[in-house]
């Protein structure tokens, strides 16, 4: 099993921190890696890269549109640019550039969006990215990755460097529970099954993977066997694993720190409608913006926790 431990998950580094460290590691091996920053290097953690490789670090000022297209220009001349900002800014202020200078010509740009979801906490909704799967996922050719912990993030960065083509990686601000053992091998584009199960499948991504594992424990106490899948690759989605889960367990819950209407849940529903229709329940942010608060307080308040996932599982099972 790839998972570290049941129920009491130990905290590892924030995925943004893991990103910053992994990028330096990758850049030591690959001199073509460069970074474009919009005055958030100390938050996105690309300041580690800036310290090690000042010549390969491009400060763009607070100007995301130029930053993204500049990254495209660097990539067109053979570099492997990591364009970094808060997810809420790089995907919205840079969207036109992501569309026209990156996705449409298929340019090899890597976009890192940190401070995703509502778990950024006190800064509030203007900084919270709850539309990023919708935005990045709308761009043809983009791979959209959402690592659950530091181990997955490290693998994601190494994979993104090796992959030829545009990639968006979503990272979070708070420390993330460790889901994986160090050195776990990932196959991006394929779901990771973290628990076997026969009664229901809990599909999680990012921070919600840990909540799904905890929910599986809660359900096990009631005699319900819950399968847990980590969807670390939002796009392309692993239709096969989802269809298999639908056929074998008959009901699913999708849990994500994103708007329910346009996130992973909508993609899973589309995949199942095509291949294996089954009842699905959705855990996420419902058609609204959140507010300031502590990260844990917000996740509790907006119902993005194991008890809500378990309750959704009971509902999904009842709809079989």
């Amino acid at each position: 099993m790839a998972t570290v431990t049941p129920y009491e998950l130990k905290y590892g580094a924030a995925t943004r921190e893991a990103f910053g460290r992994a990028l330096v590691e990758a850049a030591k091996k690959n001199p073509d890696i460069v970074v474009c920053d919009a005055d958030l290097s100390k938050s996105t953690m690309v300041h580690y890269f800036a310290q090690e490789f000042p010549d390969r670090f491009f400060s763009c000022g607070i100007a995301e549109a130029n930053m993204v297209a500049l990254g495209a220009g660097l990539a067109m001349a053979g570099k492997i640019p990591f364009v970094a900002s808060f997810s809420a800014f790089v995907l919205t202020k840079g969207f036109e550039q992501l569309r026209t200078t990156v996705a449409y010509p298929g340019v090899n740009v890597k976009v890192i969006g940190t401070h995703s979801g509502i778990s950024i906490g006190e800064d509030g909704p203007s900084q919270m990215s709850i539309e990023d799967f919708a935005l990045a996922g709308a761009l043809p050719g983009f791979w959209v990755l959402s690592p659950a912990d530091e181990v997955a993030m490290r693998a994601a960065v190494a994979w993104a460097v090796a992959h030829q083509g545009p990639v968006f990686i979503r990272a979070g601000r708070p420390k993330a529970p460790l889901v994986y053992e160090a050195g776990t091998a990932f196959e991006f584009g394929k779901a990771m099954q973290l628990r076997p199960g026969t009664d229901v499948t809990l599909v999680g991504t990012g921070l919600l993977v840990a909540e799904c594992l905890k929910a599986a424990d809660l359900l096990a106490g009631e005699g319900v066997s819950a399968r847990v899948l980590d969807i670390h690759t939002i796009k392309p989605l692993d239709d096969e694993a989802l269809a298999k889960a639908a056929r074998e367990t008959g009901a699913l819950v999708v849990a994500e720190e994103h708007l329910v209407d346009s996130g992973l849940g909508a993609r899973v529903a589309q995949a199942l409608a095509r291949h294996a229709p089954a009842p699905v329940e959705f855990i996420g942010v419902e058609n609204r913006y959140a507010e300031s608060g502590t990260p844990d307080g917000l996740l509790d308040h907006y119902g993005l926790r194991a008890p809500q996932v378990a309750e959704a599982a009971r509902k999904a099972i009842a709809r079989k």
Binding site: A69, L70, G73, L74, A75, M76, A77, T101, Y104, P105
Partner: peptide
């Protein structure tokens, strides 16, 4: 071609990215 264009405002950024890459190399 060096770039797909048509949405205005983007070419200068692309050119500067290329220029920065050339200098780096």
């Amino acid at each position: 071609l060096e770039a797909s264009t048509g949405s205005l405002g983007q070419g200068l950024s692309l050119a500067l990215g290329m220029g920065a890459a050339a200098r780096l190399n």
